[in-house]
Design a protein around this nucleic acid. Sequence first.
DNA 1: CGCTTCTTTGACGAAATTCAAAGCGTGTGG
DNA 2: CCACACGCTTTGAATTTCGTCAAAGAAGCG
Lengths: 254, 254
Amino acid sequence: MHPREARFARRQCAATACDGAVDDARLNFCMACAFSHVCLSQGIGVEALAQLDELIDHVGPLKAGDVIFRKGDSFKSIAAVRAGTVKTCVIDREGREHVLGFHLPGEVIGLSAIDESHYRCTAVALDTVMICQFSFDRISALATRVPDLQQQLFRLISREIGNATLMMGDWSPDQRMAVFLMDFSRRLAMRGFSEKRFQLTMSRIDIANYLRLAPETVSRVLKRFQDDGLARIDKREIELLDRRRIGAIANVVP
Amino acid sequence: MHPREARFARRQCAATACDGAVDDARLNFCMACAFSHVCLSQGIGVEALAQLDELIDHVGPLKAGDVIFRKGDSFKSIAAVRAGTVKTCVIDREGREHVLGFHLPGEVIGLSAIDESHYRCTAVALDTVMICQFSFDRISALATRVPDLQQQLFRLISREIGNATLMMGDWSPDQRMAVFLMDFSRRLAMRGFSEKRFQLTMSRIDIANYLRLAPETVSRVLKRFQDDGLARIDKREIELLDRRRIGAIANVVP
DNA sequence: CGCTTCTTTGACGAAATTCAAAGCGTGTGG
DNA sequence: CCACACGCTTTGAATTTCGTCAAAGAAGCG
């Protein structure tokens, strides 16, 4: 198997990863998950959690460059990022890569495939990644019996729409970069990481393909942000020094 | 009430619009709807359709410029366009309008609000518009009892993600315009209209704000398309003369 | 250590925005 | 009914900006 097509290899069953019992360790294990709200809500309780457990496949660790799923693959399950960073992308006719998004732990990927029954983009690990896989048929069947789960699924899918439209409101390279940085910072903060200082786990080229800029422009904008005292950038480590001004540039719609 | 904020005024109850009985007229009435698949599938049948009927509010006619919902309004119901064209947009801090999408009959608007519980954009009628409104709480409650309906809701929301990411893959003004025209044509064709010749129901300014171009650029690109024999444009009426070449420019990811 | 890939920097040119102005339709009010 | 005003659209010219090209430096990896 080609190293960049590891896909769902090195899969390990949920039963081996966490040995059945619903204890504290189990809950911690899923705290970062997009479904934790469901798992922890008292209305569902232990037996529903056990049912949910059966649906989960834990995949990984994957390494940078490994493909999680490929555009056109038949869609059977949605995947939640448990650890690491994932990019989703498509390749156009001229061979250029367009990055649709970067996905952090607790976020769900592959949802746009629900309507089409095959993935509409390719998902690639940017560093060491762990994945939780859910059979969509089975989780939606379960959702008919667990209204909270259905609500959570609706919310999850809906959130993706908002994410997708986030980048549609900005024009200049500076605005796009500011939105990207503020969004990344916000999402890291939601997960308990520092909102000021963090690693950009993706290359400048990935950022460029995401913001639809030339890599050189990404480099120049970041340099200008640094010169203006907005941020301190050292390779892939970044510290946001003036989030107020960056937010003003981002012009996030009020 | 300000004329541009008609919102859900002039509402008429479904019961008055179609008098209770589930007959052929009733089915025709909802044929163009995004939920017609559900309504017509034999698995659901008459009594579920009757239940669905109770959820629907028919709103309209609204006229060009009327606001259907406004960003920040609390989200209670999703809306399907029954007739006319709707744009969704946000206004940024500098007062510039950013158009997020144009919506045709049978399409659903406001889905990105599910996660946030308030609308994330404003919806405005571009011409004479009829709307079907569904209480989201009630339709999702019904969905727990009608798996087909749940599936359809998942698919609908999922489809929005794909739509939102459609414009993310293209760079040049020509590409963006070509994608816009081909997408509009395709969606019209899906609804039984001509895919070659149709009305652009929105202004050049709206198109510009959607494609993130200056209105002048929109004008020039359309003129160039006409000069190159790709299309014939007369004010807001357009005829696509060479869909193959336009599609080639669009470079829709394969 | 040498290769490859990523990143940065400078110079240049193509291209789109901006600015300015005129043409065109539509609706309003005299 | 006509004249006028307003907004939309088109066109031209000037300016800015970003992408392209070229090349050098830095980092990761076998």
